[in-house]
């Protein structure tokens, strides 16, 4: 992209006023902001690390060395844990656990929450009832919700998954309903109904695309909250079952050895912060791209 091509680009801009995939095109704007690029590079690095973990560390997260709770060295950059396992390796495998969790749970929460929020268009009374139910979920602090779920299905991956899905429902549901309420009386929606298009089709084809922007931004913000839900539940000991590492589980045991081996907490803590930072920046960039229109 040299300076000479700038006029040429400006000329083509007018021709391409209506790109073939307008929504996708708009979201590609994320790549044009500094925050968006930083977020994607950071996230890309973390995902690559997590994906490559089995290749980089073929021994897995359980490989033990001779010394337990050894300080940082050339062989073990962050030292070793109470069983002589490399903390850096466990941190990267923990990152893998966290990423799998949020990549599966947040979209499920987004999808179910959005559908729940849009039910009001199909049946007004049902919509109101769903909102009341969501209000009650919203009133319960996230960690307490997690404890309740652990109580019913037991601690572990699925409890974390459910906690993240359920805690997100009110946020997505209320947002989708707010969007629905502003969109359903717009001319295009009323016109489609008058033309005899079924409510369900109007909802999916016309209303949903118009409420999707704030939902995606919220999904990015909620991902940060999801990371913290995992960490909070794991720190109190109700998260992923050992020996599988997660960032929160590492902080849980690391906090016990903070006096002797500070890197045990610092390593997972920094990775957790970077992960949260990546999604915060991404939500900022998405927000900007969505509002550009």
């Amino acid at each position: 992209m040299s300076a000479t091509s700038a006029p040429a680009r400006r000329a083509t801009k007018d021709v391409r006023r209506a790109p073939r995939f307008p929504t996708l095109h708009r979201y590609l704007m994320v790549l044009k902001s500094g925050r968006g690029i930083t977020a994607l590079v950071l996230l890309g690095t973390l995902v690559a690390l997590a994906l490559l973990a089995p290749a980089l560390f073929p021994g897995g997260y359980d490989e033990q060395s001779s010394g337990a709770l050894a300080g940082p060295s050339a062989a073990h950059w962050l030292g070793t844990d109470e069983f002589g396992r490399d903390i850096l390796v466990r941190t990267i495998y923990g990152l893998r656990t966290d990423l799998t969790l949020i990549i599966t749970a947040v979209p499920v929460s987004l999808a179910i929450g959005t559908l729940l929020g849009l039910t009001g268009y199909l049946n007004g009374r049902l919509g109101l009832f769903v909102q009341r139910a969501l209000d009650i979920v919203l009133g319960i602090p996230g960690l307490l919700l997690g404890i309740m779920i652990v109580l019913v299905i037991g601690a572990g991956w699925f409890a974390l998954f459910s906690a993240i899905v359920i805690a997100g429902l009110p946020q997505f549901g209320r947002l989708a309903r707010a969007g629905l309420l502003t969109q359903q009386d717009r001319e295009y929606a009323v016109a489609s109904r008058t033309l005899g298009v079924p409510r369900r089709t109007v909802m999916v084809r016309h209303i949903l695309p118009n409420v999707v922007d704030p939902l995606l931004v919220t999904a990015a913000i909620y991902t940060v909250a999801a990371i913290f839900i995992e960490a909070s539940l794991s720190i109190v000991g109700l998260g992923i079952n050992p020996p599988q590492p997660s960032l929160g589980a590492l902080l849980n045991t690391g906090a016990r050895y903070v006096q002797t081996l500070p890197t045990y907490v610092i390593g997972p803590g920094v990775v957790l912060l970077l992960l949260a930072l990546a999604f915060t920046l991404l939500s900022d960039a998405l927000n900007k791209a969505a509002n550009r229109r």
Partner: peptide, 8 residues
């Protein structure tokens, strides 16, 4: 709720 984690 935060107090739970802080206590831990």
């Amino acid at each position: 709720a935060g107090a739970v984690v802080i206590e831990a």
